[in-house]
């Protein structure tokens, strides 16, 4: 079996560095397979978070040759045979050990979002939605919370503005609630002031890394920005709202 060179980041919150490993690889292997081989044969104490190995749990998010990816969905033959594959933890979040990060900040953001506030039921006691009303929202429900978008967002990653911007994943969640046909909650003031829609300069890296191919920027963040414009920056829209009462 051919051998491939890997560099895996080893360390913890106090610091660390890459360690090199040679791994015998087989056809069809993904990066997570190689990491597991390293763990079982060369570095038993290597920490890696994983679960479904099918790209649906979002646990094995790492950076592979500098790009945020799911280790279980990244095939080794995506890289040239002589290319060394570097694996490191998500850079935007604190390291716990080796490839495992503390992503709890994301869960804290989720708790801040006002939940769905449904309209009153129809007279027959039912809630009704037409398919075309929920098509948009269903795209956002594909999110597996891998937080690759949060990791690559330069507002969170480079500028460390976690106190000012909730991040792409939660802009998508906000969009799914704001566009929901049964929802009555008004989150626009919070989207502008607390969740920081204006901090996003729409450079679309979140969309580029999404393993579920959710069009985060075009279908999630920009529509929210436009709703903020409706409310705060468009004098004609404001006038029309006043006329309509």
């Amino acid at each position: 079996m051919p051998e491939r060179k890997f560099r895996v980041w080893r360390g913890d919150d106090n610091g660390g560095d890459y360690e090199s490993y040679d791994v015998e690889v087989e056809q069809g292997m993904v990066v997570l397979d190689a990491v597991h081989l390293i763990q079982s044969r060369q570095a038993n104490d290597l920490a890696v978070r994983w679960n479904c190995k099918a790209g649906k749990c979002g646990s094995c998010s790492v950076e592979i040759n500098g790009k945020p990816k799911l280790a279980c969905m990244t095939r080794l033959n995506d890289y040239a045979p002589d290319e060394t594959i570097s694996v490191q933890p998500l850079k935007a979040f604190p390291v716990i050990k080796d490839l495992v990060c503390d992503v709890s900040w994301n869960y804290e953001q989720n708790k801040r979002i006002p939940p769905l506030k449904p309209k009153p039921r129809d007279k027959d006691g039912q809630f009704r939605m037409m398919q075309r009303d929920v098509d948009r929202v269903q795209e956002f429900r594909k999110c597996i919370e891998c937080f690759l978008c949060q990791d690559v967002c330069h507002v969170v990653r480079d500028h460390d503005a976690k106190d000012k911007f909730v991040g792409p994943r939660f802009m998508v969640r906000l969009a799914s609630l704001e566009m929901h046909p049964l929802d009555e909650e008004d989150r626009i003031p919070k989207i502008k002031e607390e969740f920081g829609s204006g901090m996003c300069n729409i450079t679309r890296c979140c969309t580029e890394v999404c393993p579920e191919h959710i069009n985060i920027t075009d279908n999630g963040i920009i529509p929210l920005k436009e709703r903020v414009v409706d409310r705060y920056y468009d004098p004609i829209a404001r006038l029309l709202r006043k006329i309509r009462g």
Binding site: E63, G66, K67, P68, K91, V152, H154, V155, R157, D158, H159, A161, F165, G196, G198, M199, C200, N201, T203, C205, E208, V209, K225, V228, V229, Y232, Y233, D234
Partner: peptide, 27 residues
């Protein structure tokens, strides 16, 4: 800001996105 995904951007004292000088983008 940034030049590409997962590539370090230009140093900015205080990043404000489109909330300050770039507020006009909302028009």
């Amino acid at each position: 800001s940034p030049p590409a995904c997962a590539v370090g951007g230009i140093r900015q004292g205080k990043y404000r996105g489109e909330t300050f000088l770039l507020l006009f983008q909302n028009l």
